[in-house]
């Protein structure tokens, strides 16, 4: 039976206090996570196994919840720098989300001049959404031109959160930020819309890697920020299988909910149904018996 690896790296002290992230520890966590995931001796080798040097790589962050609960610069930039160490050009790396406003509210400074790492939202003048909707199964959406035209490979780097409808929001749902009408897929618990958006060619053909930012996990009442139900878990989760990574994210959330005496997502009436749909579509595996979790601490 084929088994997929998901790597969890813990970085003690990476978020020693709210709002502070130790970039040095993050860099070590990412380096170790990539090496373990790819089975290489160094993170640079892992990157060379994942990308070619001419790839234009998008790092899709999630900035919707502002500075409190987002993929912050202290987390995304160490990854971007590691990609450069692995042989990619800085100017070909794009850190992005839906809007410039959200990117800025997450703590980033926009960089649109094509030098160094580019940082922008889809509403930047150089981007926008495709003119015609992409039609795929039940999906009809205009995709961000960043995703369709300006990158060759995509990394989903989202914050792991509980979600009032989908149950879990992680690496797959992060791509709702790549379409112009995510609200149109929130009914029926984001299922099967979430899996079908991921399966649409602009995402599926470019997605290479999922990293979940579980440094602070919103385990209840997400995706909004509620500090009383957020825990500094100080972990990053890595995987090539987007479904397996989200399934592990679900397990982490359930663990925290149990620890704090909350009902499971199943008991709360919102298990992440999209994982089953994603598995049915062949996007990956959600079954725990087919997922090998490799855990390490740096």
């Amino acid at each position: 039976m084929a088994v997929t690896n998901v790597v969890i790296v813990k970085g003690s002290g990476v978020r020693s206090r709210p709002g502070h992230t130790d970039e040095g520890i993050v860099a070590r966590m990412i380096g170790r996570g990539l090496s373990l995931m790819m089975g290489t001796g160094s993170p640079e080798e892992a990157i060379r196994a994942l990308f070619v040097s001419t790839d234009r790589v998008g790092i899709k962050i999630n900035g919707i919840a502002g500075r409190e609960l987002t993929t912050p610069p202290e987390v995304a930039f160490p990854l971007a720098r590691l990609l450069v160490q692995g042989g990619l050009e800085a100017r070909r790396i794009m850190i992005w989300d839906r809007t410039n406003r959200e990117v800025k509210s997450a703590g980033y400074r926009l960089n649109l001049d094509g030098t160094e790492f580019q940082v922008l939202g889809t509403d930047a003048a150089v981007a926008g959404y495709g003119r015609d909707p992409v039609i795929h199964r039940n999906v009809g959406s205009r995709f961000s031109a960043i995703q369709t035209d300006r990158i060759d490979a995509s990394i989903s780097f989202a914050v792991l959160k509980d979600h009032g409808l989908a149950g879990v929001t992680g690496g797959m749902k992060n791509y709702f930020g790549a379409i112009h009408n995510p609200n149109k897929y929130h009914d029926t618990k984001c299922d099967p819309g979430l899996a079908e958006v991921f399966e649409a060619p602009p995402i599926k053909t470019k997605h290479r890697l999922t990293i979940l930012d579980a440094l602070t996990v919103q385990y209840h009442r997400g995706p909004s920020s509620h500090p009383k139900w957020a825990e500094r878990a100080e972990r990053l989760v890595f995987g090539l299988d987007p479904v397996a990574v989200d399934a592990v994210g679900w397990m982490l959330i359930e663990g925290l909910r149990k620890k704090h005496g909350l009902p499971s997502l199943e008991e709360d009436g919102r298990p992440p149904l999209y994982l089953h749909s994603a598995e049915t579509l062949g996007l990956g595996t959600a079954r725990s018996e087919k997922i090998r979790i490799i855990e390490e601490e740096v």
């Binding site: 919707i64 919840a65 502002g66 009032g164 609200n183 149109k184 929130h186 009914d187 009442r221 997400g222 995706p223 909004s224 920020s225």
Partner: peptide
């Protein structure tokens, strides 16, 4: 809807 979320 939670904080910062939009309706359908």
């Amino acid at each position: 809807l939670g904080d910062k979320e939009r309706g359908y």
